[in-house]
Design a protein around this nucleic acid. Structure first.
Lengths: 136, 136
DNA sequence: TCCTAATTGCAATATATTTGCATTTGCATT
DNA sequence: AATGCAAATGCAAATATATTGCAATTAGGA
């Protein structure tokens, strides 16, 4: 699906700026910070402004179209959030409910592992505890 | 062991500022950002300067005495790094080596889980792959 | 085509962090 | 104990990152 329809599905107004920003994030193989998103967007749409990028990153985040990733650097990074994409689970020990969690610790570890020469192939991450209902 | 000896062991010069900063981090139950570390240090040592805090955070990080934690907020957070403290493992599938990793994804998830009313009690995080030797 | 709320650009502001430089200080060595 | 010097500090300025107010523009439904 193209960015225009993705935005429409999320009930977001379609503007050239917003389309460009989402396109830049969606088509990147790597996670990008706001500067990089701005620069690449400006290449495609020179009139675009940094504030517009920041504001749209917030909106796209709210709408669940992108993810914010925490890294050791002091600028936030973003990537596209596709349905069915990689995620982990929070599991309730009482009722067994499995809540999907759209977060993967590997994203912020890749650099660190590369430095020590480790090539990760698989990983496992699960959280156990009590869900809202069961912890009452 | 007191902060003074910890610093000595790491071959770091002992200054009132450095001692105070490490003490503040070591005695906190929660992770702190640079502002909080500065404010609490300034309470104990009013003459201390923010640059000194930043510079020492870098040095303590280099020396492995503290850890930097990635969070959603746009300020970095820190905590003390004690030997034997909570950690996870990277495991080589060929030679079986288990490399300790001083990183826990839960630290940055606590807020998120609290928001959805989930009370975590346990978690599991393991990385599998090939270590430097075995990936050649 | 018209209307309105949402969006944008721009400049100003806020917040977080780094850096240059003169001064001070820890500490090894005399 | 006195000395020397690299390391550390304080301060101000610079840089990086992100947010906000406001007037002008624009998307998209009526």
């Amino acid at each position: 699906m193209d960015v225009e329809n993705i935005l429409r599905q999320s009930n977001l107004k379609i503007t050239p700026q917003r389309k460009t920003i989402l396109k830049v994030i969606a088509e990147s193989d790597i996670i990008l910070d706001s500067q990089e998103i701005y620069q690449e967007s400006a290449r495609l749409l020179p009139s675009i402004n940094p504030s517009t990028v920041y504001r749209n990153l917030d909106i796209l985040l709210q709408s669940g179209l992108i993810c914010k990733i925490n890294t050791q650097e002091n600028s936030a990074k973003y990537r596209i959030r596709e349905q069915g994409s990689h995620h982990h689970h929070i599991i309730c020990k009482k009722c067994g409910t499995s809540i999907p969690l759209d977060f993967c610790p590997m994203e912020e570890l890749d650099n660190k592992l590369e430095k020590i020469g480790f090539t990760p192939t698989e990983h496992r991450f699960e959280i156990f505890g009590y869900c809202q209902k069961c912890s009452k």
